[in-house]
């Protein structure tokens, strides 16, 4: 069943007098619980497509349907609510809050998603997720004392703790070395499969494609291959 559908999505930027068409009418659907990789050369429009799907920027034209609701027609507050409760994000950099401990990063996400769990229930969820990403021993550490790989593990924990329906990951391994990249991608796949989270990730690393159920290749603002 399709959870996410993009119909004829276009994105145009005005660069002075010149109109730059980044997306030229993209059609895409994401099935529930499946991992989809977006690949393509630099400037092909893959990151733009991901951020439009995630509600971080609007499409110039076309429909972005999540559970049948068109994000393009929603106001900012409704999109924020969807981002807080139904979406999870992993960025190229971990982007952790520098003044919160690992545990607090996750509690903040539960707070942002307006979790109905009681305090002790929230604490046990945090414990469980930290075990899942292998970071329970660093729960009181601040981001400044974590390694790149550890930060990205915490970012993954933050992205899934509120049980989102869709996980968006924009080059989640770009700042990591080859060994850590594989570990992180294996972790993302394992967790999203276990929790049945639909995942869309952007990568330029061919090695990461083995972790995806579907691969979508983009070129010059269009999908050129779907496998």
């Amino acid at each position: 069943m399709s959870l996410f559908t993009l119909n004829e999505v276009k994105k145009t930027f005005n660069n002075g007098q010149i109109k730059e068409e980044i997306l030229k009418g993209v059609n895409l659907f994401l099935r529930e619980g499946e991992v989809t990789a977006l690949v393509g050369s630099s400037g092909s429009g893959k990151s733009t497509l991901l951020t439009i799907a995630a509600g971080l920027q609007s499409a110039s034209d076309g429909e972005v349907l999540f559970e049948g609701k068109n994000l393009s027609q929603m106001d900012e507050e409704s999109i924020r609510k969807i981002r807080a409760t139904d979406f999870g994000f992993i960025f190229q950099f971990a982007h952790l809050v520098p003044f919160l401990t690992v545990e607090e990063q996750l509690l903040l996400m539960l707070d942002v998603s307006e979790s109905k769990l009681k305090k002790h229930e929230q604490m046990s969820v945090v414990e469980r997720i930290l075990q899942l990403v292998g970071m329970e021993h660093r729960k009181n550490a601040y981001p400044s004392s974590l390694s790149g790989g550890e930060k990205q593990r915490v970012a993954i924990a933050r992205a899934i703790i509120h049980k989102p329906k869709v996980l968006f990951a924009d080059e989640p391994t770009a700042s990591l070395d080859s060994k850590r990249s594989k570990d992180v991608m294996a972790l993302i796949r394992e967790i999203t499969k276990n929790l049945k989270i639909t995942t869309l990730f952007v990568t330029h690393d061919e090695e990461m494609l083995s972790y995806a159920d579907h691969i979508i290749k983009m070129s010059d603002g269009l999908i050129v291959q779907h496998s």
Partner: peptide
Amino acid sequence: LFGILKAIGLK
């Protein structure tokens, strides 16, 4: 930082 917090859905 505020941009990231907004991205994850903070009001």
